[in-house]
Computed example of a mutant assay.
Amino acid sequence: MSVETDLVTVVCVTYKSHALIEHLASVLAPFQHVVVVDNASGDGTVDAVRQHLPRATLVERAKNGGFGTGNNDAMRHVRTPYALLLNPDCSLDVPDLLTLLATLQRYPTAGVVAPQSWLADGSAQMCFRQAFYEPRLRSPYRVPDGTCSAKWLHGCCLLVRTEAYNAIGGFDERFFLYYEDDDLCLRLRQAGFDCLFEPAANAQHIGGASSTPSWKTSFRKHYHYARSRHLAIRKYLGVGAAWRYLLKTMVGGPPAAVLYGLLLQPKHALKWAAWSCSAWASAFAPSGRK
């Protein structure tokens, strides 16, 4: 076991991840420090963690608090200077972790670094970009040649400096799902920490493997995407921009859902129905106006 890995605690947040735990255990075998937070899976995930990861610190939540809340709970148990926030459907080999660690040590003002992750079909996943409110580049995603700074890093695999994470209070727990990694990176930068992308390190990301595909799951994901986007717009672009987003979605969502339904495109119909429901809920819920 590498001495450097003792500087890192691996943090995993699970939700209905039973099928992934055995493989996850093999990924985490080289690591001495592991914290798993389960978001009330109810599918045997906790039992599988106890069986395959007996040395891990296991935190069982009574209800699903979302990705950010789960990571914040886990980070309270971290005593090492670095923490690897790793999705249960993502894997990172020790040499790649050491590359990330060397990058953080080379740049002492950096608070977080992400590797290049690769999808199951062998394609490169977009792992860094500008802020969500800035214009997107029209050119296809390209893996850069060297380390670079970014305003957003993909949250599936992040090596964070524990001190920096704690300095900003971790994830904003209002983001249940989506945009929590946008917000984390932007707040780190506001606090004076850089966010780095390191293409010399590589991770494998199955993607979406922690939830069984269903119409209900898809609706919930689209719903939370729209809710989190509204929160992010309000937080970084102001109340006016947030209300414009809500009104556009409230007015345009229902007819778009009907139109796609008539065109026999149920996935698009479901998406627009979920977005419009989320917009109406955000407009009238007190939490949406905070």
Rank of each mutant, 00 (worst) to 15 (best):
residue 81 P to N: 05
residue 163 E to P: 10
residue 161 R to T: 13
residue 138 R to M: 11
residue 85 L to I: 08
residue 81 P to A: 02
residue 71 N to W: 10
residue 71 N to K: 12
residue 93 D to M: 11
residue 156 C to P: 02
residue 189 R to E: 00
residue 159 L to D: 02
residue 155 G to L: 03
residue 152 W to N: 11
residue 163 E to M: 02
residue 160 V to E: 01
residue 111 G to L: 01
residue 175 F to D: 12
residue 168 I to F: 02
residue 159 L to N: 04
residue 113 V to H: 01
residue 113 V to P: 02
residue 185 C to E: 01
residue 148 C to Q: 14
residue 70 G to E: 10
residue 189 R to S: 08
residue 93 D to E: 14
residue 182 D to T: 07
residue 98 L to G: 00
residue 103 T to M: 03
residue 147 T to K: 08
residue 185 C to R: 00
residue 92 L to I: 06
residue 177 L to N: 11
residue 126 M to Y: 09
residue 119 L to W: 07
residue 177 L to E: 10
residue 178 Y to V: 11
residue 118 W to T: 14
residue 106 R to G: 15
residue 135 P to Y: 13
residue 71 N to I: 15
residue 75 M to W: 07
residue 100 L to Q: 01
residue 92 L to P: 04
residue 155 G to C: 03
residue 87 N to T: 06
residue 89 D to T: 08
residue 111 G to S: 02
residue 74 A to M: 07
residue 179 Y to N: 11
residue 113 V to N: 00
residue 179 Y to T: 05
residue 73 D to T: 08
residue 137 L to W: 08
residue 86 L to K: 06
residue 105 Q to K: 15
residue 88 P to G: 06
residue 89 D to L: 08
residue 164 A to C: 03
residue 125 Q to E: 12
residue 103 T to E: 13
residue 122 G to A: 07
residue 172 D to E: 13
residue 182 D to A: 09
residue 162 T to W: 02
residue 145 D to A: 15
residue 125 Q to H: 12
residue 147 T to N: 14
residue 83 A to Q: 00
residue 122 G to V: 06
residue 164 A to P: 02
residue 82 Y to R: 00
residue 170 G to E: 08
residue 110 A to Q: 05
residue 116 Q to A: 13
residue 114 A to K: 01
residue 70 G to K: 03
residue 131 A to E: 05
residue 119 L to R: 15
residue 155 G to Y: 07
residue 136 R to C: 09
residue 144 P to F: 11
residue 66 G to H: 01
residue 161 R to V: 09
residue 124 A to D: 09
residue 70 G to Q: 07
residue 171 F to A: 14
residue 132 F to V: 09
residue 95 P to S: 08
residue 94 V to Y: 09
residue 84 L to P: 06
residue 85 L to A: 12
residue 147 T to Y: 13
residue 171 F to I: 05
residue 68 G to L: 05
residue 66 G to S: 04
residue 141 Y to W: 15
residue 125 Q to M: 13
residue 91 S to F: 05
residue 137 L to Q: 13
residue 130 Q to L: 10
residue 88 P to M: 04
